[in-house]
């Protein structure tokens, strides 16, 4: 492609602008979490850690954090299992109603959360299981299973189909071929789908808000502070969660790079 220097710089500048737009709210959220004023406005007040202290000392936040973790880890487990089974079915078998089958699996993300929330709440109330942590887990699994399926299916499509049949020819049963060949090959995708579904569930608020009853997750607490007694605790919680995930991300990058070097 012809190298057009001004164009290239223009495009990079544009890219920087777009990233500014994307990161501005995150950045300001962090800034305001250290701002002493209860209502975040310009000019800033003084530097303070009191919002972090408030959050840290609030048992409700910890309780919500525990609920959130329970929900997101359970969701991730269920969604990944379902996703794996479905992806494997799609990879290995073809059958008459497959489009319907795939539609059933992949449709949920196209339904707006608010509608899912309303439908789930009514349905759970009908079944008599509304207002429990379990209701959130079920709802989130429905929502995230398609993502798990997509990630694992993508990985399977990179696999040489003859591998599995080779295992059968060597006398392995379907189960042991699955265990020895398919699962190890998909492991990265399985882990990655586990983490992705956990992350999606961890940040989902609309359905949680509707179906959770008295069991609050972190996003529900945030929503409650935003709709209720607005104050920078929101920013503190947000920044804290962000900080933790970013630290882990960076550590992961570093670990990955060192491992790559070793491999070389």
């Amino acid at each position: 492609m012809s190298d057009n220097r001004p164009l290239r710089w223009f495009l990079y500048g544009y890219l920087a602008l777009v990233f500014t737009f994307i990161f501005a709210p995150i950045l300001f959220s962090v800034i305001f979490s250290f701002n002493s004023d209860r209502f975040p406005t310009i000019p800033l007040g003084s530097f303070t850690l009191k919002w972090y202290q408030t959050v840290w000392n609030d048992p409700d936040v910890w309780e919500a954090a525990r609920t959130s973790l329970t929900v997101s880890l359970s969701t991730a487990t269920i969604a990944t299992l379902l996703g794996f089974a479905t992806a494997y079915t799609d990879y290995r078998y073809s059958f008459r109603l497959k489009p319907v089958y795939l539609g059933l699996v992949l449709l949920p993300p196209t339904i707006p959360l608010i509608i899912m929330a309303l439908a789930m709440l009514a349905w759970f109330a009908k079944l008599g299981i509304s207002g429990q942590v379990m209701s959130i887990i079920i709802a989130h699994s429905v929502l995230t299973a398609p993502f798990a399926m997509a990630i694992i299916r993508l990985r399977l499509s990179q696999m040489d189909p003859s591998l599995e049949s080779a295992a059968w020819n060597l006398g392995a049963s379907q189960w042991s071929a699955l265990r020895r060949v398919i699962v190890p090959f998909c492991l990265p995708a399985i882990i990655s789908s586990f983490c992705l579904t956990a992350a999606v569930s961890f940040d989902e608020f609309a359905i949680s808000w509707f179906v959770s009853g008295l069991n609050k997750t972190i996003p529900v607490i945030i929503l409650e502070i935003v709709t209720g007694n607005i104050d920078p605790q929101v920013n503190a919680i947000g920044s804290f969660v962000f900080l933790v995930s970013m630290t882990l991300v960076i550590i992961a990058q570093v670990v990955l790079m060192t491992r790559r070097k070793k491999e070389v």
Binding site: L69, S192, C195, L248, V255
Partner: peptide, 27 residues
């Protein structure tokens, strides 16, 4: 891309596990 995404998420899971262990003891 896939690789870098993956290990990041893996690390998140470790982090979740460590985060689990601290605050609930007192409660």
């Amino acid at each position: 891309l896939f690789g870098s995404k993956l290990s990041r998420r893996k690390a998140l899971a470790y982090g979740a596990a460590t985060a689990l262990s601290t605050p609930f003891i007192s409660r």
